[in-house]
Amino acid sequence: MDFALLHDAFWGLTFDGIALGAIYALISLGYTLVYGVLRLINFAHSEVFMIGTFAALVAASGIMGVKVEDDPRTGGSMILTLVVCLVVAMLASAITAVLVEIVAYRRLRQRGATKLATLISAIGVSISLVELFRIITDSLPREFPRIMEKTFLFSYAGADIRNDKVIVIIAAGLMMFALERFITKTRLGKGIRAVSMDENTSTLMGVNINRVITVTFFAGGLMAGAAAFFYILVYENTSFKVGFFLGISAFTAAVLGGIGNLKGALFGGFALGLMETWTSAVFGTAWKAVISFIILVLVLLIKPTGLFGESIQQARV
């Protein structure tokens, strides 16, 4: 127990927690979107994220030619590299998510299979993707070349604010804003909301359900891809196992906020990021999963549908 560290470095930890929380929030948006529409946990979503990290890696070293031993880029070249990596990661993840839906979900959904059967099918896809990348990478972690010089922008109350984390927080905020606009304002977003309220009725109202589901997976994949790029930008390494750990945390975040609820996913992501950073300062990093889990259980016991409740209150949860 080390409360002194928490006290002394409180603002620094809080800043780190917000950056981590932004990544969690982006991933948990994917869980929540799919849950809202299909009422299913997308078990392969963590692998969608994992593929995003590798896509960013390929974009940086393959397309932009940045090598691990190179000096960080500066100016226009740096911005171009960052944007290319981000876009490639987002597209790779989104395409993976859509393929996952076609392979693991579509046929089972059309045959009216049980939730569990679909769950196992998604787990099968998840296992296959992890194994594929384990074989490709020879079980070794991969280092991400440093694209940008990491400097401290300024200091606030003893907290050093690092530029890459500022970029992550701002960019993640923009993504979430864009997603929120998309869901509330566009025709397709309206379709997503309609399907998550009542699948049958929205079909009767002329919503093309297959397209809505594809778009949902695509949007969730875009968010996961962005999270993957931000993750690799800050932590600068990835491995085939990366999806597993981040996926569990992000899923916990989605449930904490109330799965199926977009605001819940955002709040849950940031709350979990902060809690994990604070508690690992006090109890050591080894126990952070335990602490955040205990908090999750307590929240669920008091409010069984998560902090914000499910956005679409059904008769039965």
Partner: peptide, 20 residues
């Protein structure tokens, strides 16, 4: 090497063919 991969693919294929 690919045995777990084959296993994962078999899981998906089987669930698609016989969801029950």
């Amino acid at each position: 090497q690919p045995r777990i991969l084959v296993f994962g693919i078999a899981l998906v294929v089987m669930m698609n063919l016989r969801p029950d």
